[in-house]
């Protein structure tokens, strides 16, 4: 079955890709991006969500690099990349729907509602845990909001 001399690769007819040099460059790029993401987190980009988005973009660049070179997707059969891409699509879908839902709900909380209780009822104490639970929430640090906002932002 082995028709060609194989100090290169096994008998699938694949050719070798990558190599120490390529992988070294990839590692250097990943380490650089790690430093960038740490530095970026110390800079205020205006809003908390902007910082999160920038951090996630950098993480996605890193993840793409890992997938393409370390995981060989760049040279691999397209089917494997398609499996991976469709996974990410369904993950996005999984996030998107509940996100749309929770951000477009009509608030139907009772008028005397004062935020979540943050304490267990007797039911959980019966099961033996809950003793450690902060039954009376500790006073919030100065400057922090007094309680969780009842309405959606």
């Amino acid at each position: 079955m082995s028709t060609h001399h194989t100090d290169s690769h096994h008998d699938t007819g694949h050719h070798l890709h990558g190599g120490p040099k390529v992988y070294g460059v990839v590692l250097a790029a990943l380490l650089t991006l790690t430093i960038i993401t740490v530095v970026a987190s110390k800079i205020d980009f205006g809003s908390a969500s902007a910082n999160v988005i920038i951090a996630l973009i950098i993480a996605t660049i890193k993840a793409t690099i890992v997938a393409l070179w370390f995981m060989h997707l760049k040279y691999d059969k397209p089917v494997n990349g398609m499996i991976f891409a469709s996974t990410l699509f369904f993950l996005a879908l999984f996030f998107a729907y509940p996100y749309i839902d929770t951000n477009s709900r009509t608030d139907v909380k009772p008028s005397n509602w004062k935020g979540p209780a943050y304490m267990p009822d007797s039911g959980s104490a019966v099961r033996g845990i809950g003793a450690n639970f902060p039954v009376a929430p500790a006073p919030p640090p100065p400057g922090a909001k007094p309680a969780e906002p009842a309405a959606k932002h």
């Binding site: 910082n51 999160v52 951090a55 996630l56 993480a59 993840a63 890992v66």
Partner: peptide, 16 residues
């Protein structure tokens, strides 16, 4: 496993 950590790191350690 590495790839998942790449996301865990900013999400937990770097939100500001």
């Amino acid at each position: 496993v590495d790839l998942i950590w790449i996301y865990l790191f900013p999400l937990f350690y770097l939100i500001s």
